[in-house]
């Protein structure tokens, strides 16, 4: 990678290669925990922490690890940080943990974390790797909050648990199936904006 400003790396995760809307990676939590803004936000925070720490760790030991065993080594590092997050949330954020305990543990299998470790952190120095992790994590958080806002507002007429509309305009949005509709419609809408306003290609990548 040539000289690229830190801001560019950071922004890349937020918009250019937004993990959820653009790379279409790690969609499971994007649908699963976003029936409310609060859960989406807290899940995003957990992922943000894990991604930053994993990128930092991988970058630190990148010259030390033989390429032959890098994937198992990365998996182990990810699992370690997820365990730490899980233990800390289990002790200090009880309410959240009760609701999303399983999904916190599943961060370990998120393709986005492994893919950033492999694609970026294994080839870059400490600071850029950290910024990449933060950017990607924040991009993820942003996406979850956006979906959470859409679903909670339309489905329950409230935001972060505070009742605003006093009615439930589209109850289906908070139901299990609503997550898929919300995702599909939001993605389509963002593509449309991208094409009309920014003149981009406006196509979602394949999805892995």
């Amino acid at each position: 990678m040539k000289k690229v400003s830190y801001w560019a790396i950071f922004k890349n995760g937020l918009f250019g290669e937004n993990p959820v809307f653009r790379l279409a990676l790690s969609l499971c939590p994007a649908v699963a925990v976003t029936s409310g803004v609060k859960n989406g936000f807290l899940m995003g925070v957990a992922v943000f922490f894990v991604m930053t720490m994993v990128n930092v760790t991988v970058s630190l030991i990148r010259s030390f690890i033989s390429p032959k065993v890098r994937i198992p080594a990365y998996m182990f590092i990810i699992a370690t940080w997820v365990t730490v997050t899980d233990l800390v949330m289990g002790a200090y954020a009880r309410d959240v943990y009760k609701e999303m305990g399983l999904y916190i543990m599943l961060i370990v299998a998120f393709a986005i974390v492994l893919s950033r470790a492999e694609v970026f952190a294994s080839k870059n120095k400490l600071i850029p790797s950290m910024i990449d992790g933060m950017g990607m994590g924040l991009g993820f958080l942003l996406a979850l909050v956006l979906i959470g806002i859409t679903r909670e507002f339309l489905g329950k007429g409230s935001l972060w648990g505070y009742d605003i509309l006093h009615t439930r305009p589209l109850l289906i949005m908070v139901l299990p199936t609503g997550g898929f509709f919300a995702m599909g419609l939001l993605m389509g809408f963002l593509n449309w904006i991208d094409r009309k306003v920014f003149g981009g290609t406006g196509a979602s990548s394949g999805g892995h």
Binding site: F180, G184, M187, N191, A203, G207
Partner: peptide, 18 residues
């Protein structure tokens, strides 16, 4: 519709199956 090609329509479909 162009904006919905690929993943977005797949999501909507999944919602219907769900």
């Amino acid at each position: 519709p162009k904006s919905f090609q690929g993943l977005p329509i797949a999501f909507v479909l999944t919602g219907l199956i769900a």
